[in-house]
C-alpha cells in the first residue's frame, strides 16, 4: 500500500500565496477528484507536488510512503513513484517518445526489453495511432492525441500515484473516454506484485468523473479545500455550480482575486 500525504501545504508564486494549507491523503487504488473554479490553485497543487519551477513552498509537507518529496528534484520524485499528466503537455521537438521512456526506465533501474511491444499494446488499448509513436514528443499532435500520449506514458511507467492535471481539457469525448477508462482500470488492477494506482485527478468539470469513478471528491477554492465528500459531491456541483461553495471559503474571497490568481499562474 502506497500513500501520498499532503499536509498543511502552503505555496506561493512570487509574493502571492496560492495554496493556503492543503491536506490530502491518496492511497493505492483510491481515486480522489480535486475540483475547483479557475484560479482556485488546482494547477499549482499539481505543479508543487511534482516540483515544477516557479513555485515556492512556504509551509507543509508532501511525502510518498514517508519519503519527503519536497526535498527531491523532480526526476527523483518520478522515480519514487509520482507521475504527472500535464494539462498542456509540452512539445519537445526532435525528442522521440521511446528514447524518453528508455531513459525514464533506466532511472528506475528497470529494463526496457519489450518496450516496443508494450507501447504498441498500450497504444491500441487507448486508440492511439501506432504511427504517432514515431513522432517527436507532442509535436503536431491534437489535444486528444496529446492526452492519449500522456496516458500511454503513465501506463508504461506504472507509477504508484498519478496526478492528472485537467486530463479532460482540450480533448474530444472519445479520447476522454479512452484515457479515463485506462486510468480507472489502473486504479482497480494490481499488475504483478504492484499495488493498484492511486489517482489525484484535478479537474474543473465533472465530465471526466463519468468514466473515472472517484472515491473521494474535494472542492478547492481560494487555496483551501472547502469541502470533501464522496462522489455525490460531484453530482451536487453539477447542479449547483461552484458558487455554493465559494461562500464557505474565507470571507475575503472575491472573484477578482480568483482572476488574479489565474493570470499570475
Amino acid at each position: 500500500m502506497s500513500t501520498l500525504e499532503i499536509k498543511g501545504l502552503w505555496a506561493s508564486v512570487g509574493e502571492k500565496e496560492i495554496l493556503k494549507g492543503i491536506d490530502l491523503t491518496v492511497r493505492s487504488g483510491e481515486v480522489h477528484a480535486v475540483m475547483g473554479p479557475n484560479g482556485a490553485g488546482k494547477s499549482t497543487l499539481s505543479g508543487v507536488v511534482m516540483g515544477m519551477p516557479g513555485y515556492d513552498v512556504t509551509a507543509g509537507s508532501v511525502t510518498l510512503d514517508g519519503e519527503d518529496m519536497l526535498s527531491m528534484p523532480t526526476w527523483q520524485r518520478a522515480v519514487a513513484g509520482l507521475h504527472l499528466i500535464m494539462q498542456y503537455p509540452t512539445e519537445v521537438p526532435g525528442v522521440m517518445l521511446d528514447d524518453v521512456l528508455v531513459e525514464a526506465l533506466k532511472s528506475r533501474e528497470r529494463s526496457s526489453d519489450g518496450l516496443e511491444q508494450l507501447l504498441r499494446d498500450e497504444a491500441d488499448r487507448i486508440g492511439f495511432d501506432n504511427q504517432l509513436l514515431q513522432r517527436p514528443l507532442n509535436v503536431d499532435l491534437s489535444g486528444g492525441e496529446k492526452k492519449r500520449n500522456e496516458t500511454l506514458q503513465l501506463a508504461v511507467l506504472a507509477p504508484k500515484i498519478a496526478i492528472l492535471d485537467e486530463l479532460d481539457s482540450g480533448l474530444d469525448i472519445d479520447a476522454l473516454r479512452a484515457c479515463a477508462r485506462r486510468v480507472e482500470a489502473m486504479s482497480n488492477e494490481s499488475v504483478g506484485d504492484s499495488e493498484p494506482l492511486g489517482v489525484l485527478a484535478i479537474t474543473h468539470y465533472s465530465r471526466l468523473l463519468h468514466e473515472l469513478k472517484p472515491d473521494f471528491v474535494h472542492i478547492l477554492a481560494q487555496g483551501h479545500i472547502v469541502k470533501s465528500g464522496g462522489p455525490e459531491l460531484a453530482v451536487q456541483l453539477e447542479t449547483d455550480g461552484y458558487a455554493t461553495f465559494a461562500g464557505t471559503a474565507e470571507a475575503s474571497a472575491e472573484s477578482s482575486s480568483a482572476l488574479d490568481d489565474l493570470f499570475s499562474i
Partner: peptide, 11 residues
C-alpha cells in the same frame, strides 16, 4: 521542455 522530461523520471 526540461521539466517535462524530468517529470517522467529522466535525469
Amino acid at each position: 521542455q526540461r521539466f517535462y522530461l524530468e517529470s517522467r523520471g529522466v535525469r
